[in-house]
Amino acid sequence: MGERTEGIKEKTREEEEMGQGSKGYWKEEMEKGEGMKAEEVKMKEPEGVEEESVYVEFESRSHNEQFARVVAAVFAARLDPTVEEVEDIKTSVSEAVTNAIIHGYEKEDGMVHMKLTMKGRDFFVEVRDEGVGMDDVKKAMEPLYTSKPSRERSGMGFSFMEAFMDEVWVDSAPGRGTTVRMVKKLGNGTIR
């Protein structure tokens, strides 16, 4: 309620053909989201797709950035990803977790929550903080934009997430924390 949902990438044709992937998983989020069509939300779940999740939470300390991406890499290894896919996931997790630590919990420490889910060949990452949140998600996601120019931030965190993952969603509101959700479809073999 009152949260913003920025769907930054349109659903692709392949996804409809596959009939699996993000639709079912993000169903709830999409129902809340703006501009999503009802029939898209009601895609039926394919039968027999294995789903497995792990959930970790850790303090908002910078050395936990490494912890988070190693956990993601180890979990993703079960899907037998390519070296490049693992690197893409590690970089994206690192970006999201660093954002939570630097921006979300800028003023006071808190817990960062990370949920990893694999469903078929899709690898979902959710990184959530209960920090300060932001009112302009679109602006935050602009390449080179940084709210902290004095802190040597490149402003490329979201650009990297978007480049390395297949889809990225960000929910945030001032005072309500930020949730980043991303999906990587393994085995696409596409280099973008």
Binding site: E87, T91, S94, E95, T98, E152, S154, M156, S159, F160
Partner: peptide
């Protein structure tokens, strides 16, 4: 073998 955007920020600095 690993670098993210924070490394870019450090190089820019």
């Amino acid at each position: 073998d690993f670098m993210d955007s924070a490394g870019i920020g450090m190089l820019l600095g």
